[in-house]
Design a protein around this nucleic acid. Structure first.
Lengths: 124, 124
DNA sequence: AGTAAATTACGCACCTTTTTGTAACCACGA
DNA sequence: TCGTGGTTACAAAAAGGTGCGTAATTTACT
């Protein structure tokens, strides 16, 4: 699936991480092993189809590992690979960068600073 | 002005950096001040529409600064802001991560990495 | 001298391509 | 029948490309 002819690793990662879901899913998987239905509960706005598609993409990229357990209502678990775990702090760093850069220009006068802070509270 | 209503800074950065162009443009702007036509030459596959759109987005995000010089034929220069420069190493880190993870057998295919490069058939 | 074309950095309208959402269906067994 | 994880077909939306118009000045041709 990852039939990429890009010369540049940055283009490749960005193609991997682009869109709303990849980083969100990584965030939730960072919390530990999750089942398909867990991830849907964690993020109710993702469609069934998108979740499978994105999980497959993350799997192909070596970020997520899929474990299928034989059984009655079929159980499948997803978790971050070691590489996936190494990716997490890099993504977090981007989030931090964004927060600090938004701070330096986001206060137009005497707005309530406290409100702004709690407004941008991360999901950590 | 970035009027974004996302709760999470990571979602916001990723929305900013998603797509093929943002990181590419940042890469070229990292080299120094560039004019519109320079950037088109650097990246011939981007359309003028996309270039203006993406530059505007980067500008709104505070990553790129636009300087317009009076005169004809109108000259406009683009360069990274300090925040933009701080972003560069973070993006590079993602590129490095990708390179190392691709190396360390992250792709459990049945063929070796060399063959996989020239062969487009993977999992379909 | 007069006209035409080129230049630069766009905006806009139209159209195609890609991505994403919706909904239905499959299989299995309690 | 329900719930599990997944697939497929079709529709909607978003992203992206093409080409034309704009500005004020210089150059190119006639």
């Amino acid at each position: 699936m990852k039939t990429l002819v890009s010369r540049c690793p940055i283009e490749e990662v960005m193609q991997m991480l682009s869109g709303r879901w990849p980083t969100l899913l990584i965030y939730y998987l960072k919390q530990g092993t999750k089942r398909f239905s867990d991830l849907r509960r964690d993020n109710p706005t993702i469609s069934h189809k998108m979740l499978t598609l994105e999980l497959r993409k993350l799997e192909d990229a070596g970020i997520v590992e899929r474990s299928e357990f034989e059984g009655y209502p079929l159980r499948v678990e997803y978790q971050l690979t070691p590489a996936g775990h190494r990716l997490v702090p890099l993504i977090d760093a981007l989030g931090d960068w964004w927060e600090t850069t938004s701070d330096t220009s986001a206060h137009p006068g005497s707005m309530d600073a406290e409100a702004a802070v709690s407004n941008t509270a991360s999901r950590d």
